[in-house]
């Protein structure tokens, strides 16, 4: 076992799956000789050649559409969207086609496709390179949405996604690509799509997060832990289908919930968690359900002070934890 970054774990998962199954191929902008804009596919073109690692035109609609066609005909495409911000031209393909084909054809066709997309701000990317898109796509039945928060889960979940017979949107925290490091076992293992993970046990309040925010929540929980506040941290990992049991069980234990997400607050993913807790956990509620999220502005600002104002980080999260613990 060795320590790897998030992006190394992702690359390793693709490498192993390409070697394991000849039906797997990668397509996307600059994924070939260049190795992708974030170097996720670095070295794979040399290893697997132009029929397995295919550079695409600058057209997300066609990247996904090609993936759907290939998947329906027995291949297992990994479509890379360079930035999650760019996925919207493929929205119709994903929502109206990929997510519905199994249902529409009465089970005759499946779409075993993975769409990988780096999401999130904090990297000085401005409006078009910082967005969080998980809420929009988690709303769609028939599409699985996965966001790993650490290298171990990233490798195991991506392998599960590639082997899954349904379309999976695999979102990667680009800020964490080289920031988040962790032990990753050599060789084959999977982390199942679905179950959430209680990454820190606590008694005073539960914090729900995923991806980059989970990383920050760990730091914040550590910080307030020194003040005697015991935080339970739930890493959701799979946003759809959601592991409601884990979500509710933790809430039953603590009675207080804070949901942290980077996407803008209004109708963000945390709204659904809050609604489920209010609906099915009402008798266990000991405080208002709180959300800490990005503000409702049209984009993550380019200016660094404004970007800091936008992004939830360890300090803001710790303050929210203190406020909820004191309620």
């Amino acid at each position: 076992m060795s320590e790897k970054t998030l992006i190394e774990a992702i690359r390793e998962a693709m490498d192993e799956e390409l070697a394991r199954n000849s039906e797997v191929f990668i397509t996307g902008e600059d994924v070939g000789p260049r190795g992708g804009v974030f170097r996720a596919t670095l070295g794979l073109f040399a290893k697997y050649g132009p029929t397995r690692i295919i550079d695409s035109p600058l057209a997300e609609l066609s990247i996904v559409a090609v993936g759907i066609g290939a998947a329906m005909n027995g291949l297992r495409p990994i479509c890379e969207i360079q930035f999650a911000d760019f996925i919207q031209p493929a929205y119709n393909q994903i929502v109206n086609e990929a997510a519905r084909i199994y249902y529409r054809t009465g089970g005759t066709f499946t779409v075993p496709m993975v769409i990988r997309a780096p999401y999130g701000g904090g990297i000085g990317g401005g409006l078009y390179h910082s967005q969080s898109i998980e809420a929009t796509y988690s709303h769609v039945p028939g599409l699985k949405v996965v966001i790993p928060s650490n290298p171990y889960d990233a490798k195991g979940l991506l392998k599960s996604a590639i082997r899954d017979n349904n379309p999976v949107l695999f979102l990667e925290a680009k800020k964490g690509y080289r920031l988040i490091k962790g032990e990753v076992p050599e060789g084959d293992y999977t982390v199942p799509i679905g179950p959430a993970n209680v990454t820190r046990e606590g008694t005073d309040l539960t914090v729900y997060a995923y991806g980059m925010m989970h990383f920050y929540c760990q730091q914040a929980a550590e910080e307030v832990g020194k003040e005697g506040i015991s935080v339970e941290l739930v890493d959701l990992r799979t946003l759809n289908p959601l592991d409601k049991d884990t979500v509710l069980n933790s809430f039953k234990k603590t009675g207080k919930a804070l949901i942290v997400y980077e996407d803008n607050r209004f109708l963000g993913y945390g709204a659904e968690i809050a609604a489920i807790l209010a609906d099915e956990g009402f008798n266990y509620m000991d405080a208002p359900i709180m959300r800490l999220a990005g503000p409702d502005v049209p984009g993550v600002p380019y200016s660094h002070p404004l970007q800091d104002w936008f992004m939830p980080g360890p300090k803001k999260i710790a303050d929210a934890m203190r406020k909820l613990a004191a309620y």
Binding site: P141, G142, N166, N240, K244, L248, E280
Partner: peptide, 16 residues
């Protein structure tokens, strides 16, 4: 301990 009825919600269960 009150028994919570499992809530059948296709979008959150086994999808397909």
């Amino acid at each position: 301990e009150p028994q919570l009825e499992p809530w059948e919600q296709p979008g959150l269960g086994e999808l397909f």
